[in-house]
Design a protein around this nucleic acid. Structure first.
Lengths: 331, 331
DNA sequence: TCGGTTGCTGAGATCGGTTGCAATAACACT
DNA sequence: AGTGTTATTGCAACCGATCTCAGCAACCGA
């Protein structure tokens, strides 16, 4: 594969490099036939422009970093998937950056992002660590966050309405006849986790039933502990809301190992709407986040901000997704 | 953030650009004190070299593309996770490329990879499409494939021993007392899927029991169809081997919806060893692939090949991971 | 026929580094 | 002191594009 530079094409087409460059990046500035000829020659040679050289010169690239803490978490995986598509649709190239919760790595990715002249980046939920780093690198105006953020003002965000989601879950459970509804918390550090918990506490109180927090832990074992707590109770709730689908899985699994069946003995509802949930045993009823929309919107927000400097905060509506893990309470 | 180029540092340190360059990339070529001084100045300015400019000039970068068909599949997610780490350990930066099975995208990533001067790339399973593209782009000698490959010779591979894995599953099931063991196939197009199927067929025959292929389909619904098939049988097997964990999940889920319980009514064993399986209901017994090892080894293989041109084929041993989805056959 | 536009293309500097080559300094040896 | 090495550093071309500016031809109206 002979090295193909713009000069090679230029020579082959009998024009100057700058003309070739224009033929590609500013078509209207080149005479129609010249351009067509150049394009044909380039095509024949199998030439493509070097994104590196391009980025170096123009100080802007088409690389969009997506920073997630853990790609193993299906929520982030689905997000990554739809965002890859969304980015692609708009001519960007998504770069997945997995921090594994390591602040040093977050820092690393931010500097890399800077160095690669990424026009903007997307940060998925999103501990304080990440947002701090964001500011430190003066990226406040080039990042979209998929979560609510501390100083809500500086950076655009897209979130789903946590309170509404919990409300939907509660309503669903109420409508099935449940009155005693427990809660198991999710991954700590994120605002959404906190929001969901708060919403549960408030809405429970409002509806007159006492909140039962089975576990407020942060790690992946919250589900397991929540289940244990449930088993120890004299008068356990007849339904459980899990802060997210992964936790719901863990709860159901742990319960199952103790002989408690879902939904026969206790109903469980998740939060996320993972595709995986459809293949769980039983299929998981859950509050669905419009993940695909989030991806597209995040990119739109970023582009919009880059143009007119606007900082928007989009809040999406979650939806109820009824599958098999909820039913009426056991008599 | 003032633009930080090598010249800025050079001026600040009172030396020439080339000296700064050497201080970073060829330390031994600069007098100790000079280097230290430069590094200090750079540090103070918060300077980092531009990987872009560097790659452009040296025609080699530290970007390692990892090409996967679907990041939503937990197997690839786990692979991506460990490979990110492995790459990081060696000073590389992993770029996750998700093709969603789109050949055009695969092509796109390959050219991008070429343009970015990636020293090599990793392709995870891996339909014919991918391997063809590999050759088309003359990347045969710069790619490691995580799967077995057609013309096994040209490109280094790391795989786990499918036959051995199936054997382990079979042995486990036999030791529990099962004699009639069904099989549900996995995602098509990959060699590993074919290998596992073949191994099942052969080994079943050898052990004297007739193979029962519940579904040989390729898509994600193979599990569901397999379960349906099972339900229609007059004399269904007492255990099922699923070609991979995802399929196992689907099988158990579909079975569960029809009132068939695992492992009480039928045992199910998966293949992959996903962390997710531990939180399934019931926790999934499975044949574990050493995913983390695969990641590290893939990178080692690539580096080795880059140095001495060797093309190795590493085959790893799978392990049995007993959890809760298998037990003795129902009397 | 001449000054003024307009449209297109070529020259050459530049982005941020790398690197072969030359220049200088320092040191060893006869 | 004279000469040969060796260690450092500066110079300048180069990687593959982009972009401003200038040159040039065609075109317009008077």
């Amino acid at each position: 594969m002979p090295d193909l530079s713009i000069d090679v094409v230029a020579k082959a087409a009998g024009v100057h490099r700058s003309t070739v460059s224009r033929a590609f990046s500013r078509p209207e500035a080149v005479k129609r036939e010249t351009r067509e000829h150049i394009l044909k020659v380039a095509e024949g040679l199998g030439y493509t422009m070097s994104p590196l050289a391009q980025a170096l010169r123009t100080k802007t690239s088409t690389f969009i970093p997506l920073i997630v803490p853990d790609i193993t978490n299906p929520f982030f995986a689905e997000l990554a998937k739809t965002m890859t598509q969304a980015a692609d649709d708009r001519g960007y190239q998504l770069l997945l950056c997995v921090t594994n919760g390591d602040p040093a790595k977050t820092d690393g990715y931010f500097t890399a992002m800077q160095a690669m002249y990424a026009p903007f980046g997307i940060v998925a939920p999103s501990t304080k660590v990440d947002t701090e780093a964001m500011k430190r690198f003066d990226f406040g105006h080039k990042v979209v966050v998929i979560d609510r953020v501390e100083g809500d003002d500086a950076v655009p965000t897209v979130t789903v309405d946590s309170r509404r989601g919990i409300m939907i879950a509660l309503e669903h459970l109420h409508s099935l006849g449940h009155t005693s509804i427990g809660y198991v918390s999710g991954i700590a550090g994120t605002h959404t986790a906190q929001d969901r918990m708060d919403a549960y506490l408030e809405l429970s109180a409002e509806s007159g039933s006492a909140p039962v927090v089975l576990d407020s832990g942060s790690d992946l074992d919250a589900g397991t502990r929540g289940a244990e707590h449930y088993l120890e109770m004299d008068n356990p709730p007849t339904a459980i809301i899990a802060a997210n689908d992964m936790v719901a899985f863990a709860v159901i699994s742990a319960l199952g190992q103790r002989g408690v069946r879902v939904p026969e003995d206790v109903s469980v509802i998740g939060f996320d709407g993972l595709a995986l949930g459809a293949r769980f045993n039983p299929p998981l009823t859950t509050v669905r986040q419009p993940i695909a929309d989030m991806g597209h919107i995040a990119i739109e927000l970023a582009e919009k901000q880059n143009i007119d400097g606007s900082v928007d905060h989009i809040v999406l509506e979650p939806q109820l997704l009824v599958r098999g893990s909820t039913s009426g309470p056991r008599k």
